[in-house]
Design a protein around this nucleic acid. Structure first.
Lengths: 139, 139
DNA sequence: GAACCAATGTAATAATATAACAAGTCAAGA
DNA sequence: TCTTGACTTGTTATATTATTACATTGGTTC
């Protein structure tokens, strides 16, 4: 279990905002949401985000400049992290660790590159949006 | 062969700047480099970048907000693209297509997610930097 | 308490990216 | 040739994302 009780006030606020969000939030979206709770400046959010990423409680979706709470139960132990992002609804699904790593290990060994982390962002259209688009087109 | 002769003036300038660069360049770094050639505004660069990405002649390294010319000979046919980024020197190596795709296909089929593109950014330390660090530490 | 370290608050600014609109270019067809 | 329309361009202004710098607070250790 993660020791969430050690988090500071701002860190708790930020991680809770992300957990209760539908999808990824930008730093400034988080700021707006937390203004009523006394968070006033971008830096307060960014500092909390940095620490939370260090603790592997959240992730940054690089291609969106946005942040998500990790949904996988033992995510803080992951070395491999990926997302599937729907270009239509901006929804994000986490990719299980096993979809990626294997081949990379070989490549890393061959080239002498030592991995510390990975960002995998798959773009596409999710099932729901695809079905909606099909429904609109058919009639 | 790619039809580079169809590129507009700004597009040619931008792609050439990226090709002759050591590593990834930010949009504003490109702008500074091209000022002597009459490029004056960020939008001129961003528009060229957009088109070049559409043509698959260059790629964006999301986690650096920077852009690189594709080095793989048939890169414009790739659906899968990845980079290994050294956290020490910021150098970027392109990952061959075959290191990633397999497992993703299964996952995509299971979840009904239709892929259109992929951004894979592996963080770590490259061989050269690792050796340099080792040399510094040993004595 | 004094010294210290980490977290905080605040203001200012840097870096990255887009919106809005006017104007120029060029090929296809009347 | 003229004109229409799609596309590219130039320019200004502005939005969005992220960091620097510095003063302050709050607890921990000696």
């Amino acid at each position: 279990m993660v020791e969430t009780h050690k988090l500071t006030k701002n860190q708790k606020l930020v991680v809770e905002a992300l957990k209760s969000a539908e999808g990824p939030l930008s730093a400034y979206a988080i700021l707006e949401e937390l203004r009523p709770h006394g968070v006033k400046a971008p830096l307060q959010v960014y500092r909390a985000l940095d620490k939370l990423m260090e603790l592997k409680l959240i992730h940054k979706v690089e291609s969106m400049s946005a942040y998500v709470a990790c949904v996988q139960p033992d995510c803080h132990t992951h070395k491999t992290v990926g997302f599937a992002i729907c270009s239509s609804c901006n929804g994000v699904q986490e990719l299980p660790e096993n979809v990626v790593s294997l081949h990379l290990d070989n490549w890393a060994q061959e080239t002498g590159f030592v991995r510390s982390g990975i960002a995998l962002e798959v773009r596409g259209t999710c099932k729901t949006c695809r079905e909606n688009e099909a429904a609109e087109a058919c009639c």
